[in-house]
Design a protein around this nucleic acid. Structure first.
Length: 610
DNA sequence: TTAGGGTTAG
């Protein structure tokens, strides 16, 4: 449809011929005008070909040809600015040296504001730049020379650019530049080019760009197809909008447009990850009703999400049921499917079943890989079987799999979990010597362990050494440090850390506020504890009941019974009851002060507990 | 022939 609106090739050539001289150069226009072409066509063609050859020669041979070329080829006699000459030069240079043709075009556009090329020359110019992946110069040229943005020239270029996933991935600006060009030129493109643009936008992971292109495509009147719908679903999933994506799927399905399995699988994955398995089931039914079969990847995503709910045995059971069902239905479960299931079983403490599955996959000729080894090693570590984990670790190395930050972190976490701090410190120190780099998880694991073992100062030293690297601390770095400092009553340091993490744009976990309040109570600073409690309540954060108990206790021991009663009132407001020892303490304090308040408090306690 | 998948702390 778009093509039918374009003028025929001969019409386009005719029209171009009248444009192919530079607007400000009347002498050139006179000498090489179209009327001259019609009278002495053969002579002129020969002359122009000669000029073009000579111009090419000079451009190729002289490094700074821009400064001398006009004196070598006076426009009035050489025809250097004749459209045919320009097109010939562009074509010849594009064949041999695309970047030189780009330089020539830049020089032309600096010499005049209106450059025109015949579509063939424009096409070979962009084709040559595309072949050498010179995307930046190509985009620059399209922006500067109007005829490069014609459909017949731009459409194949766009398709080639967007097929070069690596360049797009390495330089996101390429697509932003393309977007600006398309917005300013309002050029129509073919459906396949629009789809390649949308697909490329997904590579950049920047959905703002995707939506700009998508809007342009729709506004240009191009009707989307199944691929377009698939890309839109992927973009919406990436935006965290699976419900909107689901409605897109429903809408297009009604029109019998069925997006590809990959896109629908991503939608299924998004709903699986947020635990909406009802919607997952609905989409699977929709797929099957539309004649599209979910594949191994689709089910793999569901199994993975079900296994992620570790601890919830019923979910792992359901994952296991789907996994076994897949085998019965003849799906060729691969190493990833097996590893996912093995990992799920390990995480729910079902080591024996996990090992049976390992044997089964080996019997089927599927080789466990570093992921599979790590899943089992992690299972052993979590269940406290460090020796078995170690043995399997050595086996993994003997099979030729290299240890990594992940495998070391797994062992590190196992050692930390089971109180083997000295071994953990040793492993952490060994990692760089074995060529394994630390990451934020390595640091966080050891920092947490040190804090748990009461070695907060050592943890702080480790944190300081982390700051000297390029690894940025995360909230999981700060939380154990704050806990450790509060337990030691180092409240200035603890509150300072809160300020530091907030300055980094991080949000303290709710429990860190609890640590702070308890810490202030520990050092007898009930006033600051109260202030921190107010800050929490104002931010709609719910303190733990034990934290409020500690504060009541602290206030009572300082004789501030009225403040203690205020805290108790807040506790009752959020349906907490008072811990029994704190309750006794408070009553005994009140008995010496005001028997009426004792009765009132007892009434409230009865009310809350009923 | 290709896409989309699995591991470590909290």
């Amino acid at each position: 449809m778009i093509l039918s609106k374009l003028p025929s090739k001969s019409t386009r050539l005719r029209r171009c011929r009248f444009l192919f001289y530079l607007a400000g150069d009347s002498s050139s226009a006179r000498l090489f005008s179209s009327s001259t072409i019609s009278t002495g066509k053969n002579d002129l063609t020969t002359e122009l070909q000669k000029s073009a050859s000579n111009v090419c020669e000079v451009i190729r041979r002289q490094p700074r040809w821009e400064s001398s070329i006009l004196s070598l080829f006076p426009p009035s006699t050489s025809g250097i600015f004749h459209s045919n000459c320009i097109s010939l030069v562009i074509r010849r240079l594009s064949d041999s040296n695309p970047l030189l043709s780009f330089r020539y075009l830049l020089w032309l556009s600096s010499t005049s504001s209106s450059i025109s090329l015949d579509p063939e020359a424009a096409g070979s110019f962009l084709k040559a730049l595309s072949a050498s992946r010179a995307w930046k110069p190509a985009l620059h040229a399209i922006r500067s020379v109007k005829c490069l943005s014609e459909f017949s020239v731009l459409d194949p270029f766009v398709f080639h650019l967007c097929s070069d996933a690596r360049s797009i991935y390495c330089d996101n600006n390429l697509l932003y530049d393309l977007c600006d060009i398309l917005e300013s030129h309002s050029t129509k493109l073919s459906l396949s080019s629009w789809n390649s643009i949308l697909s490329a936008s997904l590579i950049t992971e920047k959905t703002d760009l995707f939506h700009r292109f998508y809007t342009m495509m729709i506004e240009s009147g191009t009707a989307p197809d199944a691929s377009t719908a698939g890309y839109l679903i992927r973009a919406l999933c990436r935006d965290g909008e699976p419900t909107v994506a689901y409605h897109v799927l429903r809408d297009v399905s009604r029109k019998r447009i069925i997006p590809d399995v990959v896109s629908i699988s991503q939608l299924i994955s998004a709903f699986s990850k947020c635990g909406n398995f009802g919607r997952v089931s609905e989409i699977i039914h929709l797929m099957i009703a539309s004649g599209s079969q979910p594949d191994l990847f689709t089910y793999q995503e569901i199994i993975n999400a079900l296994c992620d709910g570790a601890g919830r045995t019923a979910m792992v059971d359901e994952a296991f049921r789907i996994f076994n069902d897949l085998k019965l239905k003849g799906y060729a479960c691969d190493v990833v499917t097996y590893t996912t299931m093995i990992d799920g079983l390990c995480k729910s403490g079902r080591m024996e079943e996990a090992l049976l599955l390992w044997s089964e996959m080996v019997a089927y000729g599927i080789r466990p890989n570093n992921y599979t080894y790590n899943a089992i090693i992690n299972g052993y570590c979590k269940s406290g079987n460090i020796d078995h984990a170690r043995k399997l670790y050595d086996e993994m190395l003997s099979k030729g799999f290299k240890e990594s930050t992940v495998s070391c972190n797994t062992m590190l976490a196992g050692l930390c979990l089971h109180g083997r701090l000295a071994d953990a410190i040793n492993l952490f120190a060994e990692m760089p010597k074995r060529g394994i780099h630390h990451d934020v998880i390595s640091y966080n694991t050891l920092i947490q362990c040190l804090c748990k073992e009461g070695k907060t100062s050592d943890a702080i030293v480790l944190y300081s050494s982390m700051l000297a690297t390029s690894i940025r601390p995360s909230i999981s770095t700060y939380t154990p440090l704050i806990m450790g400092l509060c337990k030691e009553g180092r409240m200035v340091d603890a509150t300072e850390l809160i300020k530091i993490l907030e300055a980094q744009g991080l949000e303290p976990l709710v429990c860190s506020n609890d640590f702070i309040i308890s810490g202030f109570c520990r050092v007898g600073d009930a006033e600051k504890g109260m202030a921190w409690l107010s800050r929490m309540l104002q931010s709609n954060l719910k303190p733990r009941a034990e934290t409020m108990d500690r504060l009541v206790e602290c206030l009572c021991s300082l004789g501030q019974v009225d403040c203690a009663l205020q805290v108790v009132k807040k506790m009752f407001d959020i349906s907490y009851s008072l811990g029994s020892s704190v309750c006794h303490l408070l009553i005994s304090k009140l008995c010496g002060v005001d028997s009426y308040q004792v009765c009132e408090l007892l009434d409230e306690i009865v009310l809350v507990e009923s």
